[in-house]
Design a protein around this nucleic acid. Structure first.
Length: 190
DNA sequence: CGGATTTGACCTGCGC
DNA sequence: GCGCAGGTCAAATCCG
């Protein structure tokens, strides 16, 4: 998924049902009838901790973006811990921290935690975060060679609000066979 | 039985 | 240097 919110863009606006932003820029496709989604792109948020998932800020990922495709090594499931040799592994760990992809954060009002965005995700972790009543879940795209990750958490202030943070870009199209015109429109935008 | 999820351990970065 | 918090791994478990 290629978001319209590029690395240095800052989007701090909120949308409402009466807003001109009634149509999401994100290809979020909720099929659940229990989901009443308000699309509220939050722009760049890199500080979800400290109880401030709504904070947005410019993240200069220039350093992080100097990756030269290092982590295109997807020959194993463990994309960063692929070596059994400890010294080499430590180097990879260092690299890992440098490989932060651009991240995009937005909130959705939904009864379900995991929004159906058309991509297939595998959960790989869950953590209780400080100052939050709800755990944060970590997901990774299951598509081959796709390194996109997302994390999902609920606002402690409003448990109906789901904060979803995407990291990286999909290098493929959604795998399911939905033919929603809205999805087609959204996909064509990227 | 294979794939997905859970969950405790481990690692790193950061602030003090 | 130490402790804390976030992020990830991987074995165990669950489930269709």
């Amino acid at each position: 998924m290629n978001f319209p919110f590029e690395e240095t863009n800052v989007l701090t606006f909120f949308s409402s049902s009466s807003s001109s932003l009634s149509s999401p820029s994100f290809p979020i496709y909720n099929s659940s009838s229990t989901t009443n989604t308000t699309y509220a792109p939050l722009g760049f948020s890199n500080n979800l901790q400290d109880g401030g998932p709504l904070g947005s800020k410019v993240v200069n990922d220039d350093q992080d973006n100097i990756r030269g495709g290092i982590n295109n090594d997807v020959h194993s499931n463990s994309w960063w811990r692929s070596s059994s040799e400890s010294g080499e592994m430590k180097n990879k760990v260092k690299i890992r921290r440098k490989l932060r992809e651009p991240r995009f954060c937005f909130q959705t009002k939904s009864d379900v935690d995991v929004l159906d965005d058309g991509y297939k995700w595998r959960k790989y972790g869950q953590k209780v975060v400080k100052n939050s009543l709800h755990p944060r879940s970590y997901y990774r795209c299951t598509h081959n060679n796709c390194r996109v990750k997302k994390r999902v958490e609920r606002l402690s202030e409003d448990c109906r609000m789901v904060i979803t943070t995407y990291e990286g870009r999909h290098n493929h199209i959604p795998s399911d066979d939905s033919t929603s015109p809205e999805r087609d429109h959204c996909l064509s935008s990227f």
